[in-house]
């Protein structure tokens, strides 16, 4: 079994009101030093069998076309083999 993780984060110039609300929640709980919070998403994609370059290339294409919107988001792909 192989797993690919796609982390999608908002570009720095994009307004993130959800992150701002979380920031205020953290500060209200005593975490006064917090300067900023940006909220993103993570996709954990599990494959049958090992991950080869072809799969990774497909994931990369779909991360840019489907999992993220390049107008507002960046993504990073991580992959690792998992004990089945």
């Amino acid at each position: 079994m192989g797993r690919v993780i796609v982390d999608v984060t908002l570009k720095s110039e994009i307004l993130d009101p959800q992150g701002q609300a979380v920031l205020r929640a953290l500060q209200s709980q005593g975490l006064k030093q917090v300067a900023d919070v940006r909220q993103g998403k993570t996709f954990e994609i599990t494959f049958e069998g090992a991950i080869n370059k072809e799969v990774l290339d497909q994931v990369e294409a779909l991360a840019s076309e489907v999992l993220s919107n390049p107008v507002i988001e960046n993504f990073v792909i991580r992959s690792y083999e998992k004990e089945s």
Partner: peptide, 17 residues
């Protein structure tokens, strides 16, 4: 339309949530 690329830009969460 924005997601499809027929129009530029994107609609995101309202500023005041």
């Amino acid at each position: 339309l924005c997601e499809s690329g027929l129009l530029p830009g994107v609609l995101t969460r309202n500023k005041g949530l």
